[in-house]
Write a protein that binds this DNA or RNA. Structure first.
Lengths: 107, 107
DNA sequence: TATTATAATCGTAATATTGCAATATTAAAT
DNA sequence: ATTTAATATTGCAATATTACGATTATAATA
C-alpha cells in the first residue's frame, strides 16, 4: 500500500506523470525558469536566488537531472550546467500533445 | 518541516506546480485522457477502466476537481461530468508558455 | 417505503516527499 | 600538502500521498 501502482498504467501515462512530477514543486519550477533564462551556464547562487537550504536545492536539482532536463558538469567545486534543450522540447511537445486530445461536446 | 514552503515562491510558480501536481500521477493522467476522449459526459465505469479501487478513483477525481479541470454533476448515484474546456486550455497555454522561455546558448 | 446501484467519506497502513543540520567530497587556490 | 569554496550525501523529523476496506450518503427504481 502507499505506493503508486505503476505497472497497471501505460508507459505513456507513466512518463507524462514522471515529467509532471518534476514540475510539481514550486522550487523546481523556479529553478528551471531561472536556469532557462540565463545567458550561459549557471555556476552558483541558486541557493540565494531560491531561498532554500543548500542540501534542499541540491536534492531538487537531482530530481531535475534524473528526468534528463539538465546537462553539463555537476560535481566538484563549481557547477556548470544548463537546460538540456532536446529534452525540454520533448517535454513541451509531450504536454502539448496530451492537452490537444479533446473530443468534447457536452456540459 | 516536511511541508512545501509555498510562501517563498511567486504565485505563478505555485500555480504551475499545483497544476503539474494533478498530472503527476499516472492514474490521473489516465483518467483525464479517458474523460477527454469521451463523446459526451461520463456516467460510470472509470473504476474498471483504470483498475484501482473505487475510493481511490474517487480521491483522484477529487484532486482533479480541485484544480477546476472537471465540470458537471458529482454527487448522487450516477456521475455526469466532463473536462472543463476553459481550464483545460488555460493549463495548456500555461505549460506551453512556461516551456517557451529559453534563452540558451551554451553546453 | 425498501431495495439497489453508485459514489463519497472515514479511518488507517504503507510509502513518498520536503526540508535541513551535520558531514563528506571535490577541485581549485594558496 | 593545506586551506578554502562549492556542492553532494547522510540521517532524520515532519508532512503529504497513495491505496483500500468499511461505512455512509444519494437518488433512482421496484
Amino acid at each position: 500500500m502507499g505506493t503508486t501502482k505503476t505497472h497497471i498504467f501505460s508507459p505513456k501515462h507513466n512518463e507524462l506523470a514522471r515529467a509532471a512530477k518534476v514540475m510539481a514543486h514550486p522550487a523546481r519550477v523556479a529553478i528551471l525558469e531561472y536556469i532557462s533564462k540565463q545567458e550561459g551556464c549557471i555556476c552558483t547562487d541558486l541557493v540565494e536566488e531560491i531561498g532554500l537550504a543548500q542540501p534542499t536545492i541540491s536534492q531538487h536539482l537531482n530530481e531535475i537531472k534524473k528526468v534528463g532536463l539538465l546537462k553539463g558538469t555537476f560535481e566538484g567545486k563549481n557547477l556548470c550546467y544548463c537546460i538540456n534543450r532536446e529534452k525540454w522540447l520533448e517535454l513541451q511537445h509531450f504536454f502539448n500533445s496530451f492537452f490537444s486530445v479533446i473530443h468534447q461536446n457536452c456540459c
